[in-house]
Simulated assay, not measured.
Amino acid sequence: MAQHSASHTTCPQELIDLILDEVDPTEKDTLKSLACALVARSFRPTSQKLIFSDLTIDHDSILALQRLEVVLSASPHLAQYSTISAAILSVLDNVKSLRTRIDNWHYLDSTCEQAIYALITRSSLSSIEIDGATFQTNRQLVTFLQCFPASLESASLSKVFTNWTNLLSNSLQFEHQLRLTSLDLGTPDPVLFQWAIRAVDFRCLHVTFDDDAMDAIQRLLDVAINVETYHLSFYDCWPHAGSPNLEKMQRLRTLEISVELNWTEILQLAGQGEDNPLNDAMRALATAPPTVEHLVLNLDIYNPDELPNFMGSAVLNDLDEGLPALQDVALRIVSSYDDDAALQRGIRYVEAVFSRLHQRGMLTAIVVPRPNLNRIG
């Protein structure tokens, strides 16, 4: 009888890499539960690399470095995929998404800070989120921004400040341009706006409105002629001296406006309810270009039964007036209230306020859970 030897078919490594690259890098549990690294020896390098492609750096993670370095000393081949300290960050070469949540950067060891700077320059980086960074001078912040690689696609900067005693210099120079699909500025620092105006080409913009940065915000909007999606947030119950003017954003297609409605806070701080932050949002909306096709209005309110306090005294024209291209309006009540009946009353109320849009089938009114927002002010 003839002997048949068992055949062994191998899959090209390039195909294995392509398959594993489709795993969402934020779903690290998937990589672990599927035990991708244990399927075969050829699966191990790409699987381990993906586990460390999405990073968050904060004080707690820095304190855990000693334990991680013990693991790496026992498995030195993992060092090329791991994170956080000067020794580890210096060899990391596959970071795609990076978040830092470090309130006081000057408390960091200088070698660790420099390692984080080096990590930010990685050519693999496509997304960065900075939540907290204080710089002593404007020049230091400019140097930090100049670290962003040309590969970057989206940037979110919140609570990023320079020392307020520093005077802003118009001579600040930015050496290279970035092309971003998305830019989120949640900090009213003028240097950030100068950087965005002079050195960034972006298509999607999110800005949190602040009176202290009104001039800088307006200058940014005046050059945002290529922006197609704009999200403007109002998170302040105090009356604003002015509102952003959007009329130069002639390619704008999707406009999202978020406004926080806190009746108790307004009664306590803003002159017995004399100011209505919803009017600030409506004044900005009135300046929107006629190109807007999709409008999203987020009403962040705890108790929807308080909506009449704001909408009853707001200057609310029909949202389609002056927007001839408008196709749909999403009005979202953002709330963590646990009374379903009140939430449904809120939906019915806004549908009645904007009855014409509702009858034409252009209005979608829903309740969404309140997210954990990083707010300024």
Rank of each mutant, 00 (worst) to 15 (best):
L246N: 06
D275M: 00
P277H: 10
L295G: 07
S258M: 09
L246Q: 06
I257L: 15
V259C: 13
E247V: 04
L269M: 13
L285P: 10
A281V: 14
A284T: 15
R251I: 00
M249K: 04
S243Q: 12
D275H: 15
L246W: 06
N279H: 03
L261F: 03
G271F: 00
A270N: 02
R253H: 11
P289Y: 06
E265F: 06
A288S: 15
G242N: 14
L295D: 11
P289N: 03
T291H: 03
L295W: 11
T254H: 11
A284M: 15
L295A: 06
G273V: 01
L252T: 02
L297T: 05
T264W: 04
G271H: 00
L267D: 00
I257Q: 08
L269S: 11
W263T: 01
G271D: 01
M249P: 05
T287E: 06
A270R: 00
L278Y: 10
E256Y: 04
D280H: 12
T264Q: 09
L261S: 07
L285G: 07
L278H: 09
M282K: 06
T287W: 08
L255N: 06
P290E: 12
N276P: 10
V259L: 05
D275K: 02
E274K: 10
P244D: 11
L252P: 01
M249E: 03
L285Q: 10
T254M: 09
H240Q: 14
E265P: 00
A284E: 09
R253A: 11
I257G: 06
Q250E: 11
T291E: 04
D280S: 15
G242K: 13
A270Q: 01
P290W: 12
Q272V: 00
D275P: 01
I266N: 01
S243N: 14
M249D: 04
N279F: 02
W263E: 10
T264H: 06
L261I: 07
N262A: 10
P289Q: 02
P244H: 08
M249A: 10
I266T: 09
L297R: 08
L269C: 09
H240Y: 14
T287P: 07
L269K: 12
E293M: 14
I257S: 05
E265G: 12
N279T: 03
T291F: 03
V259D: 03
N279A: 05
M282A: 13
T287H: 08
A241R: 14
H240A: 14
M282W: 02
L255Q: 08
L278Q: 07
E247H: 12
L297H: 07
N279P: 05
T254A: 10
E256A: 15
D275C: 09
